[in-house]
Amino acid sequence: MLPFIEKPLKNAALEVQEYVRMVAATFHGIFTRPRYRYDIVQQFDVIGVGSLTVVILTGFFTGAALCSQSGLTLDAFGARPIVGRLVSASMIKELGPVLTALMLTGRIGSGIAAELGSMVVTDQINALRALGTDPIRKLVVPRVLAGVLMAPVLTIISDFVGIVGGWIVARFQLQVASGVYWSSVTYGLYTQDLWMGLIKPFVLGFAIVTIACHVGLRTSGGTQGVGEATTVSVVAGSVAVIAADFFVTQVLIVLLY
């Protein structure tokens, strides 16, 4: 094979292989002992509580802007009163999960890659192993658990705040009565939509954190390498979120609707 194709292909295959190995080791670490409970609780705090502000702000302004834009479009059809239905469906099925995941990629993915990358280049990961600790159990498992379980919680909060943001715009800018808005919000929602909005964040949270951990643990090349790892983590995580969202949506449409 041509050398200039062979090397990138081999590198890509190696990255995929190492990612799969890390994910397999993570699942093994989740279901077997030892578990580092303190680290797990700490990561729930860092990833969950720590991301609350950014998720609330993003959700609120997205819901408000969505309502404002939708109001203009719906006016053309004289359908302004059903703006709540559009906001709730869009937020819960699509915007809530994806925007929350993108915010987590920026905040958590970059942080994880930078932290683990720094630990690699300063030999702290080797020191952990030499002291008898499995870095996957100590560092990756707590982050993956926190990412997978907190992403849905944050998404629910983002959805709710977004709908509230939409209500404020609907009430004070579009002059839609509160009762009309809220009945429209609930009227437009089906159980399948709720499942769609709840299942997606589990997958997206898993993708964000595992990619960040993988990139962080594969860091090389000193402080410059840490910078590169952080960038790669955010870029790869963001693309993975958008791509995973598409594929999960297709699967769930087949399964739920």
């Binding site: 300063t122 030999d123 702290q124 080797n126 020191a127 030499a130 002291l131």
Partner: peptide, 21 residues
């Protein structure tokens, strides 16, 4: 996994210390 018992009797001092920040 099998290395863990061996490492129980090994101490290593890394370049720059490699202390946990």
């Amino acid at each position: 996994l099998e290395m863990m018992p061996v490492r129980a009797d090994l101490g290593m001092i890394f370049q720059e210390g490699a202390l946990f920040d």
